[in-house]
Computed example of a mutant assay.
Amino acid sequence: MQISVDVHNYMEVLVGHVLAEEHYIRQYSQEQLADLACLALSQIRPIYIRHDIDFLAALPETRLLTLKKRAETAVEAAESMILDDRRKNRDDVPVVMTQTHFDEDAELEWYEKPILRHPKPDV
């Protein structure tokens, strides 16, 4: 099994449909469209599926409309980030960290929490 071939995020399809609209194709370069896709997909919950046809056959139309609206809203929000790109005309020099320090005791984000809870080993 190859996950990238057998399983995909259906929200990528919906965001792709939004970005394929003439408005976005005319206004943005391919690099900016890729940035828009990344920013938009980071805002919405993924829906992993194997086959589009099976997923769509079982999906109520109202739910599909909700998912399409979420994709449109996410792209619109991402567009505001592209238009207000802080990287343009920067006079400051970016800071490069040579050493990173992680706080091992910091609370995990909701998406970082493991699905299976294993007891911590005694140290």
Score class of each variant (00 low, 15 high):
N89P: 03
R50F: 07
E31Q: 11
V93Y: 06
L59V: 02
E22A: 15
R70L: 10
V96M: 03
K113H: 07
S4Y: 01
E104L: 15
F102A: 14
D85L: 01
A77Q: 06
P46V: 04
A20Q: 13
G16R: 05
L56E: 11
P119C: 06
T98L: 15
D6W: 05
T62N: 12
A20K: 13
H23L: 12
D85Q: 07
R87V: 10
E79G: 02
E22K: 14
A74E: 00
D91H: 11
Q32W: 04
L65T: 09
R86G: 08
I49P: 01
T73G: 05
Y28K: 06
H23N: 12
P60H: 00
E76D: 08
L65C: 10
Q27C: 10
A34D: 08
D122F: 04
G16N: 10
V96S: 06
N9W: 01
A74V: 00
Q99G: 01
S29I: 08
V123W: 12
D84E: 14
D52V: 07
Y10D: 04
E21H: 12
D54H: 12
P119S: 07
L108C: 02
D122M: 03
R87N: 15
I25Y: 13
S29L: 08
D84Y: 04
P114W: 09
E107P: 00
E104T: 11
T66W: 05
R26A: 14
C38H: 12
A57P: 00
I25F: 12
V123A: 14
A77P: 06
D92A: 06
C38W: 02
V7L: 09
R70D: 11
E31F: 03
Y111V: 09
E104V: 04
N89Q: 13
I47G: 03
D54Q: 10
E61R: 13
H118L: 14
Q43G: 05
Q30R: 14
H51R: 12
H101N: 06
G16V: 00
A20N: 15
T73Q: 02
D54V: 10
P121R: 07
A58T: 12
L64C: 01
K69P: 01
N9E: 00
I3P: 04
D92S: 14
H118T: 08
L64V: 04
E79P: 01
F102G: 12
H23M: 14
P114L: 03
V13C: 05
D91R: 13
L116K: 07
A58L: 02
R90L: 13
D122T: 08
S42T: 06
V13H: 08
M1L: 04
I49D: 01
D54F: 11
R90D: 08
R86W: 11
I44T: 03
T100F: 14
Q99K: 02
V15K: 03
Q32K: 09
L36V: 04
V93P: 00
L116P: 07
H23G: 09
P94H: 04
R45T: 12
V5Y: 08
D54I: 08
L64T: 03
L59D: 03
R45Q: 11
V15A: 00
A20E: 14
